[in-house]
Nucleic acid binder design. Structure first.
Length: 418
RNA sequence: CGGGGAGUGGCGCAGUUUGGUAGCGCGCGCGGUUUGGGACCGCGAGGUCGCAGGUUCAAAUCCUGUCUCCCCGACCA
């Protein structure tokens, strides 16, 4: 990507109407554009981050046999009525609208009922199970109050997965595999060591559900950590019963602010019964499907990463999600410099390394400031000096000083092996 | 939804108390000098002050209503 052609621009000032660090930085750097409260558009650089996160999630969901599909944003009323969740008193985040002929529709805030409705058409035998389906979907929630930039919006991207199992054992096995898959996801996203599987309010079938909480000052939740035992408890279920059940003492726990980046639920057969979603077992008997629901907030994770890693100069993306691996800053426009920079750009691009090529006719300071603000992991500078010596100046985003390297060292550092 | 704060060129702000028809920085365009951490000089374009009413000779400024944004709280299945 040539920066001279990118339509977004960075700004020297942070937007006045945002206080959330993630929103300030992402807007200032041109990753996102605010449309209204809690609703943000994703510009090219922001979209790259979103897609990188999605790809990591996709790979891990595929590993545990998740089958990707896409549900719809327009949802009919009936399935939600059967579970009692159409009523605004039961679900207060509904956006609702009407068809021209008067039929009432809901805009998708979740897809549990929708998925069941769909899967009923395909699954009818124990031989069809287990099945796990997932999607990346834009969720629409009429939150009373949006806040915290992209961490709590009215429109946001979420990966939601649903498992359909024959019985408790089959369900539990899958549920456990999702926990492991989620751990891998957060690990790959660079927030693994700060993300805790957290015991939270469970619902009708289990004492607890599991949340994935990332320690983050900007988060909305408070969790209690037992670092020694690697146990975390959401304050909403912190009572004597829970403590004794988990075998920890209150005074051993450390309270920290966190953001819920994932949540997994066991619905048992509750919804299946209400929606009459059954299959035939080996004995020819009608059984209800066990449902599990597994959410992972894609755009929220992006906000959390932006918050956690930023420094005073701007964003600092972990390599796995960065919009590019290399920020190639070309200083000056002498033929030698242009030649060296163009060649490196082509070489890296050919090697599948994402590069932001700053070929703009601007001064060095501006390029360096933008490289930092955009948070690209590696900065390579091409100048008269490097062109003359056939060297390459390389600096990590958070390194203090750059160093000169040969083309071989450079490619090696960037993980390119010919 | 309760409480608090704020809406003035693309962005960040001043001006509002003490009404007299709009200013600064950045950005943008042109010319020139510069060129390794957001350069400098000159010239120039760009807003009628969220919106709607009202008071007044006169409203960014006063009054009423309304919309929007931010923060705290409540809510988050």
């Amino acid at each position: 990507m040539r920066l001279s052609q990118l339509f977004t621009k960075t700004s020297k000032t942070i937007p006045a109407d945002e206080t959330a660090r993630n929103a300030q930085l992402l807007i200032q750097a041109g990753f996102i554009y605010k449309v209204m409260a809690g609703v943000y558009a994703y510009a090219p650089l922001g979209l790259r981050v979103v897609e990188n996160i999605k790809q990591i999630v996709r790979e891990e969901m595929n590993t545990i046999n998740g089958q990707e599909l896409v549900m719809t944003n327009l949802q009919p009323r009936e399935p939600w009525e059967t579970t009692g969740r159409w009523d605004d008193k039961a679900v207060d985040v509904w956006f609702k609208t009407r068809l021209k002929d008067g039929g009432e529709l809901g805009l998708a805030w979740s897809h549990e009922e929708a998925v069941i409705e769909m899967m009923k058409q395909y699954l009818s035998s124990y031989k069809d199970l287990p099945v796990s389906v997932y999607q990346f979907q834009t969720k629409l929630r009429n939150e009373l109050r949006a806040k915290s930039g992209i961490m709590r919006g009215r429109e946001f991207v979420m990966k939601d997965m649903y498992s359909l199992s024959t019985d408790v054992t089959q369900h539990d096995d899958y549920y456990d595999s999702v926990i492991e898959a989620y751990k891998k996801v957060y690990e790959r996203l660079g927030i693994g060591k700060d993300t805790y599987v957290t015991f939270a309010a469970g619902g009708a079938f289990t004492k607890f559900s599991h949340e994935f909480q990332t320690v983050c000052e900007a988060g909305e939740d408070v969790i209690y950590l037992h670092r020694g035992k690697n146990i975390a408890i959401n304050e909403e279920v912190l009572d004597e019963e829970s403590l004794s059940q988990l075998g920890v003492k209150r005074e051993e726990l450390e309270s920290v602010k966190s953001s819920e980046v994932g949540n997994i639920f066991n619905f048992g057969t509750d919804k299946s019964k209400k929606m009459n979603f059954s299959f035939t077992n080996e004995a020819g008997e009608k059984q209800f499907v066990h449902l599990g629901s597994y959410g992972l907030g894609i755009t929220r994770v992006m906000g959390v990463i932006a918050e956690k890693f930023a420094d005073e100069k701007g964003l600092v993306w972990p390599e796995a999600v960065a919009p590019a691996k290399v920020y190639l800053a070309r200083l000056g426009s002498s033929p030698e410099v242009v030649k060296q920079a163009d060649e490196l750009y082509q070489r890296l691009t050919a090697a599948q390394v994402a590069v932001i090529y700053d070929d703009r006719d601007t001064r060095a300071g501006e390029k360096f400031a933008d490289a930092d603000l955009l948070g690209i992991p590696y900065r390579v500078v091409i100048s008269d000096k490097t062109a003359m010596n056939d060297s390459y100046e390389l600096k990590g985003r958070q390194a203090d000083t750059p160093h000169q390297s040969t083309i071989d060292d450079l490619l090696k550092t960037l993980g390119i092996t010919d």
